[in-house]
Design a protein around this nucleic acid. Structure first.
Length: 690
DNA sequence: GCAAGGTC
């Protein structure tokens, strides 16, 4: 029997179905599904992992943050700990009867590592066993059959490249996280995390915030006129000098504008509007973000759709359909839902279907596309919204382009040049079926050269330049991909982590003062960890390991050395760093407006030296002595929200292993407050337990 | 109690 190991259960099942000639038998081994079948090649079993089954860690003796100085972690051993015990047991049990292994994990670097780890686990238990690697980019019969007809060697070097990443991430992450947390006394639930991906990501938002803070608005003026042509069709035009920095100059022109003008030039151009390219994970997050989905919600919803067979695998970098996907067939399947009838008919009526293609062509999976027709009533509202987006996007990648006509007219009014723009779609292709893209139609009548126009109205618009915009989750994911930060499967988690750590909040995302302080000190003393360059350099090294030019342990050792140098500097500045970060944290501790009607103060998180407890008190103390109690444990975050029931400020409580909890600070709040009662009850039962 | 990477 040959054992096929895949990265996930659903793949194990489908591979068995595709390769079996005469049906598949499913059994459970330690609760893990194992699929058996026989074909002309012999007998096989398939088993699915759950991604990584091993995790890198420091040995237990390094667990205590106080006893072990961070620098001791730099050269500490790294062990691999099983994280999926049941799967390990099932894997070794089934493998004990196997005479060969076929690794069929995802066709990317982490897939190679996951497969290699699984192979090692088997070999440790059972001794040498032949191993081969199946490489495929989509779980379609065509792809799977040809992958298993031509098996490859397992690529140990590629797996070693992944291992270098694991080691470096753990060492840098643990050392710097512990250092910065210890230096600022932010411990347990409040620890301050640092990492190769999260810290440069946070830096993006902090830099943006600093740019916004230091932005100086410049006032400017525009002259706008409303005109009518000889047929009395009305339209707007703007003085060709779009921005007057001197109001007097604008006003002087404005005052002497006559009430007649003349068209002096007309330009028309046809502009093709290209249909969108196939969706990968980033593009899906961006598109769904425009519909109000957070990155996490998009991923969760897409996972559900995938698990129910409605869409293809949602974690992919690819934006080019492989030719093993039958596009016409897929369209036909989708037409089972009449909602998409007309759109699909239009797509199918083309003699030749020519899909668009994006810049990224990868081997991991196909782009995200719908795989079966879902009915609205079988999906949740969010699932339907996302599914509809994926269907429309898919069909639009197969539809012809639309064409817009852009017009520019130059108009002379008393010797001053004005410009009128117009745009409208003259041929509807894909845009007709893609409501997420809205072409801005600007009306401009048919004008003739030399035609006279009358000025119906004129105004001076007083405006200011605007600071740069904060990142939305979509824009941030896009930027991360551009900079090579994180992967398709992790970017949304990185953002989510930064939120629960109290580093960022809101929509668009805004960094806390704590985040600004952490990034500032890291930039001063550990610049490397704040820049995407660290990832870029690691990628180069990983390529070197993968193609055999570099040695994994050497790469890790060089990285250790760089970290040591940084840590020496950090240690010499420990006191200043701690103070700077604690000062930042204090600034975050404005809970909200004081509810006392005679008081204009802010509620702040304070510490009572008498009771040795944190509490919420008014900034106008002792004039105002409003005060509230608050939870003593966990990370407490302030929010901009007020209670729906009583309008008092709301705080967020984050504790390990628990859901973030929004808490109204008013003890007499009318909705008060099952959550709060539960919290108190639990605390009491905990005490009595002891 | 540390990271980032998989998957649920």
């Amino acid at each position: 029997m040959r054992l096929i190991i895949s990265e996930k259960e659903i793949a194990a099942k489908r591979i068995a179905q595709i390769l079996s000639g005469n049906g598949v038998k499913e059994e459970k081994v330690y609760g893990v599904p194992v699929h058996s079948f026989t074909n002309t090649e012999g007998s096989f079993k398939t088993i699915g992992l759950k991604g990584h089954i091993l995790q890198v860690e420091f040995p237990d003796e390094y667990a205590n943050w106080f006893k072990i100085p961070p620098q001791n972690l730099v050269d500490a051993d790294i062990i691999k700990k099983p994280i999926e015990k049941k799967i390990m047991q099932a894997l070794t049990k089934v493998a004990s009867e196997a005479d060969a292994i076929i690794i069929a994990t995802d066709f990317d670097r982490e897939g190679e590592l996951i497969g290699y780890d699984a192979f090692q686990v088997v070999r440790d238990k059972k001794g040498e066993i032949p191993v081969e690697r199946a490489k495929f980019s989509a779980i379609t019969p065509k792809d799977i059959k040809s992958a298993f007809a031509k098996l490859h060697k397992i690529d140990a070097n590629l797996a070693f490249a992944g291992m270098a990443r694991q080691d470096i991430d753990l060492i840098w992450g643990a050392v710097l996280t512990r250092f910065i947390s210890l230096a600022s006394y932010q411990l347990k639930d409040k620890f301050l995390s640092v990492g190769r991906v999260q810290t440069p990501t946070l830096t993006l938002m902090v830099d943006k915030e600093l740019e916004i803070d230091s932005f100086v608005k410049t006032p400017y003026w525009q002259i706008k006129v409303n005109l009518a042509n000889e047929n009395n069709e009305k339209f707007d035009a703007l003085h060709h000098k779009k921005r007057f920095l001197d109001e007097k100059e604008a006003r002087a022109i404005f005052e002497k504008l006559p009430d007649k003008g003349k068209v002096i030039a007309i330009k028309e151009a046809l502009r093709p509007l290209k249909p969108p390219v196939p969706l990968n994970t980033t593009a899906l997050i961006v598109a769904a973000n425009a519909l109000g989905f957070t990155a996490q919600k998009t991923i969760n919803t897409a996972e559900n759709l995938y698990m129910n067979g409605y869409i293809s695998y949602p974690r992919t970098d690819n934006t080019v359909y492989p030719n093993t996907i039958d596009l016409r067939e897929t369209l036909t399947v989708l037409s089972n839902n009449a909602v998409f009838g007309e759109m699909i008919k239009t797509a199918l009526s083309q003699k030749q279907i020519k899909p668009t293609r994006g810049f990224k062509k990868t081997t991991d999976h196909p782009p995200i596309y719908p795989t079966s027709a879902a009915m609205r009533e079988n999906l949740s509202e969010d699932e339907w919204k996302l599914y509809e987006l994926i269907v429309r996007r898919f069909v639009c990648t197969l539809l012809p382009e639309s064409i817009a006509k852009n017009m520019v007219a130059n108009i002379d009014i008393g010797g001053e040049k004005f410009i009128a723009n117009g745009s409208n779609i003259i041929k509807e292709g894909w845009t007709k079926y893609y409501p997420y893209y809205k072409h801005v139609d600007i009306f401009l009548p048919e004008l003739k050269n030399g035609e006279s126009v009358s000025v119906l109205n004129k105004e001076i618009l007083s405006k200011e330049t605007k600071p740069p915009l904060r990142y939305t989750q979509g824009k941030l994911v896009e930027k991360m991909e551009e900079l090579g930060l994180g992967t398709k499967a992790t970017r949304h988690t990185i953002i989510q982590n930064l939120i629960t750590r109290g580093y960022i909040k809101g929509n668009p995302l805004e960094p806390s003062k704590k985040a600004i302080a952490v990034i500032k000190t890291l930039k001063d003393y550990a610049e490397k960890i704040t820049s995407p360059d660290m990832t870029a350099e690691l990628e180069v090294d990983m390529d070197g390991i993968a193609n055999g030019d570099l040695d994994k342990s050497k790469v890790v050792d060089i990285s250790r050395k760089a970290l040591k140098e940084i840590l020496d500097i950090l240690n010499s500045k420990k006191t200043e760093i701690g103070k700077a970060i604690r000062d930042g944290i204090k600034e975050d501790e404005i809970v909200g407006k004081c509810p006392n009607p005679d008081c204009d103060g802010n509620l702040l998180i304070r510490f009572s030296t008498k009771t040795k407890k944190k509490f919420i008190g008014c900034s106008n103390y002792p004039k105002c002595n409003k005060a509230f109690s608050m939870p003593q444990n966990g990370l407490i975050l302030t929010t901009e929200n007020t209670c729906k029931a009583c309008d008092y400020p709301v705080i967020k409580v984050i504790r390990k292993g628990k859901r973030p909890w929004d808490l109204c600070i008013n003890p007499q709040c009318p909705s008060k407050n099952e959550d709060y009662k539960n919290y108190k009850n639990k605390k009491q039962t905990k005490k009595t337990d002891k």
